[in-house]
Each structure stands twice: as structure tokens, then as C-alpha cells.
Simulated assay, not measured.
Amino acid sequence: MAYSSQISGIKYDVFISFRGTDTRHGFLSHLKKELRQKQIDAYVDNRLESGNRISLSLVRAIKESLMSLIIFSKDYASSRWCLEELVQIIECMVNQNQIVIPVFYNTDSSDVRHQKGFYDAAFVKHDKNYKEMVPIWKSALNKAANLSGFHSSNCENEAEPELVEVIGKCLSTRLDIMFQSDLTGLVGIDQKIADLESLMNQGSEDVRVIGIWGLGGMVKTTIATAVFNRFHSEYEGYCFLANVREESENHGIMYLKNKILSILFEEHDLHIGTPNGMPPHVKRKLLRKRVLLVLDDISGSDQLEILVGAFDCFGCGSRIIITTRDKQMLAKGVDKIYEVKPLMFDDSVKHFYVQFL
């Protein structure tokens, strides 16, 4: 059974535990922007800490997250709120195999592990007021600090953007691996996915357009989705536009064109009124971006022309993948065509069975 089907009630990709006074308006704001860009759904409590006990809604958010990211800053342990969060996170790690990743922000992992320095000073105060909780909090800190994570002795300099980028890429990769089993391991298509990956030639800096052609119900979308999930985090912009045939009938092709550009540029409600080609300012921006774009179920060359034009407005290294039932539509401007051949009868039956488990 696929990984995602083994868990219920999951609403967020990652829960972020942090000390607001240390990180809210600096490091955290940059991290949130990076995660939005990578389309990672992060739960961040935007309220200032109030009271000593975390709310039930916050406990629920921790349990409803696939991963937790703990930003250990100098003042983290001074907050009972943060320590209560940490205990809940460690419990989720133990009881539901939640992935937990620590970030040591301007603090040393040994200080967190053994409660030294700022952490020692914090527990001197906690010993007076919350003596019964101190052993529990110290145990949680020790377990979290022993996990593999990210270290920076000085995140307030020019190295911070690089650290944020590395964290974002790590989380994206972890999520892709978690859900890869939803789209691979299906009987008879693993080799087809590998074939498409080969055609993408990831190391090449040219703009490559790949068509996936086959009759209806021949797992074209499944193959494109698996490849998109595996590689999208390596691109500066990415978009999977599903069901173009149906969506075009329901909303119009210009709606889809604007949707693609809004996603690639991360701008809400971007409106391009010209069906032919791209306006100069849009083309200029696209030429600077390395993008991965999947257009699923294209039914005509006119749709393709309006959505992407002549493929001459994408940055170096970009990849455009098109799935279609119409091979003739792929005759112009497409570098490689991958024909999805029917599964063997036994594999088809097994594939049908797996889909409905």
C-alpha cells in the first residue's frame, strides 16, 4: 500500500516550531517564502505566544503534519510554549513515525543536547517554577538534538539565504520520496517512467519538449506525474496543468494560460489578454527561468500554440512535457515523442486491481 494511504488526517507537509523573538521577522520569513515557492504547505503559528500552555489546536496541527522542523535558536528553551511543542513533536516522532528535522540557528547542537549556555540559563529559571516538567523537557531536547539536521554558527550573515535554500530542497525531496510510492510500483509502468526520465536528459541546458502519446487509459498522466514529482524541486518554476481538454471546455483556454503564468511567476490572478504568443515583458521574465511544465491531455495544436507558443520563451534547461492522444499534434516543435504502449494483459489486470485497493 502507498505511503500516503497509510496515514489519515494529515493536513500539512511540515509543522515549524520556533521562538518568535529570535526568528519571526528574519530567518523564518525567508524560510516561509522559500517553502511557498516550492509549494510546501507549512503550518506556522503566526500568533505571539500567550500563556504557558500551547493550545489544543496547535497540538492537533503537530499531529496533522507529515514532518516537523524545529528551529533551535538561543532563546528557544526560555519559552515553555516552545518546550511543550517540542514534547508533542517527539511524541509524534515516536508514535506515528513523523520525520523531525532540527535547525541549529545561531546556537550549537551540544548546547541544546546538554542544556549549556543560553539553554542552561533558561533551565535555571524553569527549575524554580516548573520543576516537575524539567526532566521531560530535557529529554525531548536531548532526543531532538541527536537527530540529523542543519547547523549554522552565524545565520545572520550572507550565508542565511543559502541555508534557507538547502532546507527547502531537503524538505521537498523528503516529501517527494514519501509520495513516490503512490506513482511507482504500479505493475508494468516502472520501466515506462525510467524511459521518460532518460528522454528528459536532465543534465542538458537546452530547452527540451517531450511528448507522451498513447490511447486513452494508458497511464500517460501517471507517468508524467511521477516524473514531475521526482524532478520539480530542481527547477526555478514548475507547473502541472492537469486535464487541459476538460478544463479548456469548462473555463476557456485563456484561463489556463493565465493559470500557468500565475503559478510559474508566483503571482496571484495574473492576467494576459493576448492569445498569440507572450507579451514582451512576460517573455523576458520566462527566459530567465528554468521551468518544468507538464500539459496533461492536450487535444489540439491550437491549445498548445496559445498555452506556450513556439517553445522559444523558456529559460535554459527548461523541460515541457505534453501528454496527448493525438500524435499528429506532436509533429511540430517536439524534440522527443514517447509512445506509451499497452500493458500486457496480466499487468493490466494487476494495475486495475492496485488502483482500486
Rank of each mutant, 00 (worst) to 15 (best):
V308L: 09
T222H: 00
Y119M: 14
Q191S: 15
D206W: 01
K32F: 09
L287I: 05
M1H: 13
Y12V: 03
M93L: 07
D41I: 02
N229S: 01
K350A: 15
V334I: 04
G300K: 12
D195G: 03
D195T: 03
L147M: 15
H126M: 04
T107V: 15
I62N: 09
E305T: 10
Y238I: 02
K336Y: 11
G237S: 05
I253W: 09
E158N: 07
T323N: 08
K341G: 02
W213N: 12
V294Y: 02
S204E: 09
G333H: 08
K289E: 02
L183K: 06
L264P: 06
A2W: 13
C82K: 07
V219D: 14
H268G: 02
T221V: 08
V164E: 10
E266L: 13
K74H: 12
V354E: 13
I7Y: 13
F228M: 06
D206L: 01
G217I: 13
P161A: 04
S181T: 09
G216M: 11
V294H: 01
T21P: 13
G217W: 15
G315I: 06
A122F: 11
V308S: 03
I90P: 15
R53E: 14
L183S: 07
L307Q: 04
A145H: 08
S248M: 10
K285R: 15
H25C: 11
Q202K: 05
K125W: 01
